[in-house]
Structures are given as C-alpha cells and as structure tokens.
Design a binder for these strands. Structure first.
Lengths: 291, 291
DNA sequence: TTCTTTTAGAAATATTTGTTTCAGAAATGT
DNA sequence: ACATTTCTGAAACAAATATTTCTAAAAGAA
C-alpha cells in the first residue's frame, strides 16, 4: 500500500507535519533540532526534552507510519549509520539535498558573508548609543524609508509601537514630508532607511530635519547614502546577493537586534504595553463576532 | 586520579585492550567495526551481534571505566552528536570588539542557527516547484500577510512587481477580503504569510481561496499556521530570537531567494520591465523639476 | 453560550532492558 | 594429572522503557 519504508524520519515529519497536533509538533521540532542524534535516547529522555508526555511520542511514531517508538528509533539509528559511514562530508551544505550550485545554497552563503562583514565593522558603542536614543522616552521618534526600504521602515515602526509611544511613521509620499518636519522638535530622532538607488528626497528630508536639531540614525548599504553626511549614527549593512536585487536580510537582522535591545532597556514599560495590546486584540475579536 | 571522563569510547578500548578477555575483545571489535553507530542499539542487540552474553557487555563497560552499559552508550551518543552537529562556520564572534554576551553577538548566533535549521529542512524540489508557479505568467498571484508579517508581504509584492504583472497585494483590512476572493480564478496562486499568533481570518481566506481552485503557498514558522492544511507548498522558517518578538530574518532570506530564482527564470522579461521602470522613475523626477 | 470532538498527560500495565548471582567451563600453573 | 584461577553465560532479579487506558482539559462546532 503506502509503503513509507524508504523515507527518512525527517522526510516523514515534513510530509505529515500539517497533520500533527501542537504537542506533536513540539516534539517533531525537538527531533529536528539536532537531527538525528536527538532521537537516540530513551523515549523518556526525548519526551522530557520536548516537554511532552511519553504517550505523545508513541502516538507520533505511529502517525509517522512506525509500529512504535523503538521502530522509529531504529530508523534513526540506521540513518546515523548511513551518514557516518559516508565519507563525503555532506554536513557542510545548507540545504543538504541540493547541490552547492543551487540558489538556496548560494544565497545562504551570500547572506552569511554579509552578516560577517557587516557585524565586524559595527562599533558596539555606537550600537549602544543608538539603543539609548531610541529608548529615551523624552524624544519623539520619526521613521522614514525609500521605495525599497519602505518595508523595513514599516517593520521597525510596527514593532517599536509596542515598545513605546511618540512614534511617527512618515508617509511614503514625499510631497507630504514638509508637514512631518513641522512636527519635529529639537532632540527628536529620525530613523532613516536609504539604500541604493538613493533618493534625493530623503537627502532633503535629512537636511531639513538636521537643521531643526533632530538626531539622525541611518540604515544604509556598504556604499552609504548621501544622507550619511547628516547622520549622527549610521549602520552600513552589506547587501550583496546572487540576484538582480540587493538583499535586506542583514539590515533586517541589525534592525531586529536594535529592537530587541531597546525592548530590554524599557522592559517594564514594554511588558505593560504588550499586555494592553493583547487585551485590545481580544476585544477586537469579540467585537467581530457580532458583525 | 584516573579520571577517564574525557576519553572517547574508542580511546578507552584501545587503552584497555590488552586487559580484555577473549569474549570482551570480540565485543570490542564489533563496536569498533562501524563505530560509533554499532553501539547505539540495546545491550541485547549488541551482545547478539558480537556473539557474547549480556553480562560480558556489562563487565566490559565497567572495565572501560563506566558505571554500566547505559553510561557507555550515553558516551557513544554524545560522540555521534558531536560528529554530526553541523560545523558550518560556527564562528567565534561576530562583532569582535563586543563580548560574547552582547546582544549583537547573541542575536547573530540565533539568526545563523535559524538559517541552518530552516534550510536543512527545506525540500529543494518543493522550492523549485514554488519558483515555477510564481514564474508562470498565466497565473495571477495574490499576496497577503497578517499583522506582523504584513511587511514581508509588502516586500515580496514590491519586488515581484518588477518581475511580472498580474500581481495583487491583498489589503490588510480583512473586511475587504471577500472582494479579493471574487477575483481569484482557478490556477491562480495565493502567497500567504502567517506566523504566530495565527490569524483566524487568514485561515478563512485560505479556505475560500482553496475552494476556488487557487494554489496556496505559505510562509510560516516552525510551529505552522493552521492554514498549512490547505497549502500546496509551505515553508517553515525558524523564528527564534533572544527577544520578546520573533525574528523574520530567515523568512526574508528565503523570500529573497525565491525572488531571485523567479527572476532568473523570467530573466528576459524582467530585464525589460526593469528598464521601463528606470525610465518611469526618471520621468517622474524630471516632472518634479517643473513643480 | 452549550455540546461535541479532539487532544494530552497521569496512571496502570506490559514489555524489554540491564544487572547480579552463580555454577560450570576453560585456561594456567605446578 | 590436579589444583587454582579466571572466564563465561544461564538464569534470576531489578530497573528501566514502552504501551495502553482513561479522564480532564482544550479546541471547535452548533
């Protein structure tokens, strides 16, 4: 019938993942975590690591087409054996079943390189200074992005909203920007995203903001937006990729790191705001029921 | 004193080999035979393979300095784990002048871990299939995201716009979604972004789309959105981070890889569209000069 | 809401694994 | 050849591991 005898445990997990329950997925993820070695202990051990009960393990083993846990484990053992006896180290590829030349592997390599290079040249003190600025509740924060970096600005805004108030996302239409500048005060912070091709309007906005005594934080690429001249702090993220476009992965990573650090700085307040937000979402859901 | 705790099982066998008896050597050689996988079964199994009795196994384990067989086996397991754990650049420190504990380094570690694990469980064939779907000009593509994954949907949309037409970004307000479903036709593709907490409305949209014969591509997290049940293809991206929020870095990375692959598939058309776009931007700029 | 279905772990049970004991076999020395 | 020592596995025992059953809790449907 549907003889699954030839599939690896990992493949079976992937195939059946959508049919697994919450606890089973938790377990599946633990097994995947450092596969396949993680599944070699006793059923008790693996259940404890995954924070599920042993019956859950048995149930999942059966869902995956095994007769019981020992059979699943035997499968894992023979996979280990096969892997270890294969001298061609297939352990140094991102997507193991794709060739080195597959875009999945090439892209991951590029991202990795970008990460390394970017982080090596970030000054932790400057990073800390930026975090301090963004955590300062007495300063209003304004966020703006260009055509391609718009999504990053958006992402940053959405997350920062939970952490603090006095936050403005500057609309994308540059015609309206002067209005936003009107509302900027000395000591405020303007977070600018600008990667090539750099936008002239952003440079102008930076100039205007600077002249009002606003502190500029800039996220840009390795070549540097012209706005860098006016920026107090700037992060130059590597954006090379095997693609016709640039990669925003590293920029997003730094951005998330900043968000995480700011959140830690303001933890008490953030916690309250998160709770309020949860409540609000619940209310909304309830409200919707009656529509 | 004679703390043998740091030696591998193989080393211990070699060191003590001369003190072993006939039956024990027989056993030792079986273990060496295809080390270390051979020792991962039950004591019964290994005794049988070696044609010795189980007490012999226990005695040898003790001679080698273990408390009993399970302890020996645990040692073997951790050796396997060490051998198999993927050594892709487990890199000393990202930001060299910051301590290991600095959030810059911790975050980067987490991101790279996520990358590794996510890519390991992506099926390249599934990836290729997704690329093919998205490159197919006869299918319209619809893109939708939840509250937090909205920016990703946005990013994807912006870039895909350059590559092809018949592209719709579904508005964030879920009240309007039925209208979008009206425009979906059999064979169309719906790209869904949904990470926890999963949104009920997205599940509904997925159901509606599915019932109209639309192919679903889902980007979700390691726990899996409930919409996965309806998805033809889904990418489970690891999103753990040392933060109160989840990290979208890996999702973005996979997304960019997809974009890059689709772009390669459609290179001729893409090139033309890029050129047209450039021209349009120039025109806009020129136009502005006269305002 | 209230009812039904699904899910998940505690507890009981069955099964297997690992250890100890012990007596006979093999090896070694005299 | 005989005595002594060492080695080995059968069998009894102890200790886990694995499975099943069952109920409370959670999720979903009406």
């Amino acid at each position: 019938m549907n003889d699954t005898r030839d599939f690896t445990v990992a493949e079976r997990i992937r195939a059946k993942f959508d049919d697994l329950t919450r606890a089973e997925r938790q377990l599946a993820n633990t097994i995947r975590k450092n596969y396949p070695a993680s599944g070699l202990g006793s059923i008790t051990a693996i259940a404890e690591t995954s924070d599920v009960s042993t019956p859950t393990v048995v149930r999942m083993a059966k869902k995956l087409g095994f007769k019981g846990f020992p059979e699943l484990q035997a499968a894992l053992r023979s996979e280990v054996e096969a892997t270890l006896s294969n001298p061609i180290a297939k352990h140094n590829r991102w997507a193991e079943s794709a060739p080195d030349t597959h875009i999945l592997n090439r892209f991951a390599d590029a991202v990795m390189d970008n990460m390394r290079q970017t982080l090596r040249q970030i000054d932790p003190q400057e990073f800390d200074a930026v975090v301090k600025l963004l955590a300062d509740k007495d300063r209003s924060i304004h966020v703006v992005g260009g055509r391609l970096s718009r999504s990053l600005a958006d992402y940053f805004f959405t997350h920062m909203q939970v952490i603090r108030d006095h936050l403005t996302l500057v609309a994308s239409n540059s015609n309206t920007w002067p209005h936003y500048v009107l509302n900027m005060r000395e000591g405020d912070v303007l977070v600018v995203f600008d990667v090539r091709r750099y936008e002239r309007d952003i440079l102008r906005l930076a100039e205007m903001a600077k002249s009002k005594g606003v502190t500029l934080i800039l996220f840009t690429d390795q070549w540097g937006s012209p706005a860098a001249k006016h920026a107090t702090h700037s992060f130059h993220c590597r954006i090379e990729a095997p693609s016709a476009w640039d990669s925003s992965v590293v920029t997003l990573s730094i951005l998330e790191t900043v968000i995480s650090a700011v959140q830690t700085e303001n933890w008490d307040e953030t916690q309250d705001r998160m709770k309020d937000l949860e409540d609000l979402f619940d209310t909304t859901k309830l409200f919707k029921k009656f529509i």
